[in-house]
């Protein structure tokens, strides 16, 4: 089955390499993953979206994902600009870098929300670049936990494909493990705007 995932964040948060890491993990599981970055006049801090497809069959689509099945949100503030607020498809999963379910989720109405304070986790394990925590790898793990589309071991095995430094490999693996432990997964029939922030 084909799953189309939009990865939303800001320039410098590691969106592109995270999508590639997921594609490696898919490859290791005998699945087909394709990471399609959207290139433009990129700059640090600008909202960025990247498309990720995963399927049991070879992938033939090259276009950007416009109506995602699922979303991985590294920075909630970048979301409404990139994906206009409207209900997602049925059975959609959203992983969000936030200490709880953000109120704006009501407008997207996902079936599952996985939340993780990935920035705090990144800081804790040492996933920091130029003083800024990099939430991408923990959020990848959070999504994997909630969706079951990728296994923890394959994500761990994918790390050295993109990270060369031994110390950084350890830190990334630690981040994946911790994220699997700390991510809260909540199921919803319908999220009300008034849903209390947990």
């Amino acid at each position: 089955m084909l799953h189309e995932i939009a990865i939303i964040g800001r320039g410098g948060q590691g969106v592109v390499s995270m999508a590639k890491m997921m594609a490696y993990a898919a490859l290791m599981e005998g699945k087909h993953g394709s990471a399609i970055p959207k290139y433009g006049a990129e700059r640090r801090g600008a909202p960025v979206i990247s498309s990720f497809r995963i399927s049991d069959e070879p992938l033939r689509m090259h276009s950007q994902i416009r109506k995602p099945d699922h979303m991985i949100i590294l920075e909630i503030g970048a979301l409404p600009k990139l994906i206009p607020p409207q209900p997602l498809k049925d059975n959609s999963i959203v992983a969000v870098n936030y200490p709880s379910t953000p109120n704006i989720m009501a407008k997207y109405n996902p079936s599952i929300v996985a939340y993780l304070d990935a920035a705090a986790l990144a800081r804790k394990v040492g996933l920091v670049r130029s003083g800024i925590p990099i939430p991408s790898v923990p959020m990848m793990a959070a999504f994997a936990k909630a969706s079951g589309l990728l296994q923890q071991e394959s994500l761990i095995k994918a790390v050295p494909k993109l990270v060369r430094n031994e110390e950084m490999i350890k830190i990334n693996i630690e981040a994946i493990k911790k994220a699997f432990e700390e991510t809260e997964v909540k199921k919803f029939d319908r999220i009300e705007e008034s849903t209390p922030v947990a």
Binding site: A19, H32, A35, H62
Partner: peptide, 9 residues
């Protein structure tokens, strides 16, 4: 970009 910058197996 569609191919040049997109990773696939």
């Amino acid at each position: 970009f569609v191919l040049s910058h997109t990773a696939s197996p």
